[in-house]
Structure formats: structure tokens, C-alpha cells
Design a protein around this nucleic acid. Sequence first.
DNA 1: AACGCTTTAGTTAGCGCTATCATTTATTGC
DNA 2: GCAATAAATGATAGCGCTAACTAAAGCGTT
Lengths: 350, 350
Amino acid sequence: MDSDASFNNGHEPTISDVAYRAGVSIRTVSRVLNNSPRVSDDTRARIEQAITSLSFRPSLRARALATGRSFLIGIVHNDRNALVLDTVQRGVGREATRRGYEVICHSTPLEEEGAIEDVLAFTRRSRIDGLIVLPPVSGIIGLPQALQAEQVAAVALSAVPINGYGSIILSREADAAGAVADYLVALGHQRIAMVTGPQSMISAIERRRGFIEALDRNRVALLHEIEGDYSLASGVAAAEKLLSLSPLPTAIFAANDIMAAGVLKVASERRIAVPSPLSVVGFDGSLVAELLTPALTTVARPFGEMAEIATHQLINLVEGQPLPQAAPPPLRLLIAQSTTASPIGDCPEF
Amino acid sequence: MDSDASFNNGHEPTISDVAYRAGVSIRTVSRVLNNSPRVSDDTRARIEQAITSLSFRPSLRARALATGRSFLIGIVHNDRNALVLDTVQRGVGREATRRGYEVICHSTPLEEEGAIEDVLAFTRRSRIDGLIVLPPVSGIIGLPQALQAEQVAAVALSAVPINGYGSIILSREADAAGAVADYLVALGHQRIAMVTGPQSMISAIERRRGFIEALDRNRVALLHEIEGDYSLASGVAAAEKLLSLSPLPTAIFAANDIMAAGVLKVASERRIAVPSPLSVVGFDGSLVAELLTPALTTVARPFGEMAEIATHQLINLVEGQPLPQAAPPPLRLLIAQSTTASPIGDCPEF
DNA sequence: AACGCTTTAGTTAGCGCTATCATTTATTGC
DNA sequence: GCAATAAATGATAGCGCTAACTAAAGCGTT
């Protein structure tokens, strides 16, 4: 008795509306929806036509129930990513949409152990098929194992390779920091200081390592370094120390744009002009860089594309398809007004 | 034949596992899950105990299929919200989690007609139960009607009341801008200029109106105004004109923090010190405000709480519960280093 | 033309819930 | 004490899909 399938009475079209319209069984429609090869071209065309004319879209939730999959992928991040979150989210969204998935976003308060529980609760609640983990959450020890135990496919953006994730998209902190070092040396700077990030965080360790190693390659020694915690206040505190050095550094590299903003603040307070005698470089390529005065030279990683790649990998993982190792998209050194050639001779005294 | 319900064989526990464990029918478990009153305290306790001990969580997707609801709510925004998006998202997330919903986020490229189609496609794809629309998307003419036609419950954050949404949470642009005007006048400023937002956008119109009306109330006339488009470049361009006026304004109010950053840039270039002789005020209370030099006085709206309220209203709407009119959370004028008393005038007589 | 083999299409049993109806059991009035 | 009513619980039909399993049709072979 399929008498009621004959009308599209107002409600959303279902697979049986399509089947009726195309004069086939729902099984065959299902085959078309799932790209099964066992359908004749003729039938397929008729079904596709019916789908279009009814503007039918398979219900994700019915499909989810039947397959045991949700067609949902999650993003976990933490508060500090606010500035790149939007970019990442959109990148994930692009690829997810392309492949028929939806995206759910979750922000966790990063308290090491607490965060693991929090993420697990999120995955259970939302029943996502796969998870994209952004740093610094991705660096939490034990998280990939916990996710594995819960059968959640996970792909991470991370500064360094980590065991346990299905795939890692490297954020190339070290390379990007190295590019900054090369750039500063090319400008003739020899007295270079750095405000590092918190050395408990992998990203910060890598930025420092990449910067110092590149300086080494250029046979330049790091004049001085002070550890910050990525906050504005710590940037200010570090700059106060660095700008009390004598002679002054000619360039300061801050491990993120926010701390660099702090450096600019102190420089301004002490009437040390930027970019000369003091060049300042930030890190992240965030929106704030161009808003500062002077606009901050910084280095941007292609987070949008990285997110797309991560999503691609994740869905491949979920669907059991091969994981091609894509070439990483290029870094971009965004040169602005906060850097210039090293002043000839020594810095003036103040 | 329920022989297989007796073991919890590895897989996620289902409602029948719970029913078996508690020695009742699944119907009764379902009642407990849905807070139906028609269950004895004794049975309820036994079922709740079984739920806990199995750490059972009802499958959203099965529930979705059975009820025709998805327990998903969406957020639509556009690129320009990046700075507050995170706050809003977290606010929505808090309330949504509390009430058993998940959140899906969608960013649309705001092209008036295009955006409507884009949002509709999003709602159809994700089958959300309700939608939270952020400005400026919420101001798109015809969108609430289009959503109504698709049966999507929608609540908007908006600068002004709009017909068609289930509920509106006012962003109080005018009030906040008025607070800035009051503050500047209290500081003794009489020559006040404004960089407005694009007068095609409601938020910008309201900010301008609120500012001017408050000045009027204080018997101060707006010295000059220039329309920007919320971008850095437009802020710079506007400042170049305003800072060529003679005599100079003693205070400039920019309709968002980004344009205010532009004003600071030009002031710095022309060696006009901020906050004296020139005070600068931004709008939004965004992260960038404190990063600028000098830190920008700005006004923050409680978007996190507004988002929570909006979500509360939305879920009430979806579930057919009453919509209480909550008192709006307070605005916060964030006074920083970019403002000080007017260098010339003393305070007005009243 | 009868046979097997491949290709295409249909039948149908769930997926884990909700909610309509029916049924059983406790409570109350007179 | 017994019908009448209320309260608590159970049996079960879907929700819109997927995916075994089954059936029919096309097509060379000998």
C-alpha cells in the first residue's frame, strides 16, 4: 500500500516521494544517492531528474540512524584561537559542505586533564563522526588516545607530529619563525631579541627553536630572549626588560601578534621609534597586525587551506578512503611598516 | 524476542538496554527521558539509576528522526563579525548545551539576495530546528519572511526591531553610542567629530543616531562627520580629513574599533598626541582595543549574554514555551588611555 | 531453445527513539 | 465492597533512510 506516496503533501519530500515520481523503488533511489554503480544510466537519469524537480535532499538524521554515522564533524579549539578560529572554521566548512557533512564547533577551557573530559563529553553528546583538533588542545597529552578509545576519528593541526591522531597537519611554526629570522638578518639586523611564548606550549617551543636555528644558520646569535605567555601584559613586561638593554636590540621578534602589540606599546612609551631604530615582528598574521601603528610585520600561516586539508583527510579517514599526503600550502611573510633595515651604527641613547 | 537486550555487548547503550536493566518497558524509559510526569517516583528512580550506571545518553539522531526535530540550532553570521563571533558562539553554546541542543555555525558572504539563498540552503542542509541570526545578516530585507516560509524558527540579534523574527534581541547600538557621547561631554569635549559606519547598514545608522541624539541632549553639536565602511582604510581616510580641520576636533568617535585604529594611525603620523590634544573612542569592545597604542576607550556590548538570551528565546520558541522578556544585560564603557579631558574647554555649565 | 551468468531492480528488516493507543494497577466515592 | 476514575505501564507503529537478501531481466553459449 503506497497510496500516500503519490502526493507531495506539503511536507519535505522523502525518498519515497522521489521513488514514486521516478517510478522505481526506494532501494534504487537509495543506490543513486549513494553512488552505487549498479544502476542503469537511464534509471539513474530519471531518478536524478525526480530529485531535482522535487528539490529533494536526503535527511541527514535518517541516514545517520541507518548508517550509525552522523555526518557531523567537530572542531575543538580553545579561547585563545579567537583570531584564527573564524578562518579555520570557514575552511573546514568549505570542505565539509563539499562532502556532505556539517560542522559543529566546540570551545574548551583547556585545563589539561579537564579538557580531555570536556572534549569527550562533547564528542559523546554530539555523536560526531570525526574531530578536528586545533592547537593547543591538540598537544594535550593523552587526548588522541582517549579519542581512539571512544572510536572518534581525529585529525589534528599541530606544531609537531603526535602519535595517536589519524593524521596531522603541521602548522610549521618553526619554518615560519625561521622565515622571520632570515628576513631580519637580510635587513642587516645583528642585535635581535625575542619574546618567546610559554615554553610549556609546543607551539612556543617550536617558534623559538625555528627562530634560533635560522639565526644560527645565518651566523647570528640571539641577543636576548624573554619568555612571555602570549598575553598582552607579558609582551609589555618583556619589552620593558628588552628595551632597558644597552645597547638596545635593533629588532624584536615576538612569538605572537598580541605580544608584539605589547612591544609597540612600550616602544611608544619610551619614545623609541619603530621601525627605526627598532624593528618589531609579530607572528600569526592576525587581523590586529594591520591595525597597529605602525602596521606590524608578521607571518601568516594558511590556516584556511590547512583546515580544508585537515577536513579532507578526516573525511577520508571516516570513510575509509586513502590519505594522500598533500603538499602544504605556503607561508606568507606579511611585510608592513614595523620593520626596516638595521640602523647603521649604534642605536642612539635615550 | 528480546533475548539480545540482555547484554550490553560493547556497543553504545540504547534505550532498551536501560529498559532491560531497570526491568521496565522502553516506553517508560522514554517517559523518564522526556520528563513526563506519569511515572512513579520509584520507577523513575530505578530508571535513572540504570541510565547512570550504563552512562546512557539518548541518541540525538534517533530522537531527531522520531520527533521530526534535529536538536540542532544554527548561527548565521558574516565575515565581519570575526571579532565577536567567538563570544557569541560560546554564549549560544552554553545555553544550547544546557537544554540539550548542539550548535552549527554558518558564515555567509552577505550579498543581499545571495545571502538569503545561502542561508536557506544552509538551513535545509543541516535541518536545524532554529536559527540565530546575527547582524548584519539579520537586517537583510526579506530574510525573516523567507525563513518563515521554510518553517525555520529564527531569533535575531539586531539593532532595531524587525518584523518576522520570532524574537529580537536588541543590540542597543544607539544606547551604547549615546553612552560614548555622554562620556565625552562629561570630559569637557565640545568639538567632537565622528567617523560613522556605512549608512546603508542599520547598525551604523543607529550608532550615528544614538551619538548625535545624546550630544543634542547635552547641547553639543557634532562638529563634523565622515562616513566610513567599518574598514581600516576608511578609518584612515576619514581621519585624514578630520585631522585637517582647523581648529582640530578634541575628540573623535569612530563607529567601530577598526576604524578607530585607523584614526590612531593618522594621528600618530601627524604627531597629534592621543589622548591629548585628541581623544579617540572606538566601538565594539573588541580584543584589538586594548592592543592598540594607546589602548582604546571603547564600548562593549554583552554579546555573550545576549547570545545566551537569544538562544533561550529560540529554544522556547521551538518547544512552544512562553517567551519571557528578559531585562537586557548592561553595556560597558571600557575606559582606556585614548581619552582624557578636553585640552581646551572646561566643563559646560550644567 | 535451454542453461548459467551478470546486471538491474525490488522486498524488507532494522537503526534508536517517540508517541498513540491499549492495558493493567492503584485510588476514591458512596 | 464494588464500580468508577485516575495513575502507571506496556505493546507497537512509525520517523526516512541503508543494506542484506531476493527476484527478474538481459545475453552469450552450446
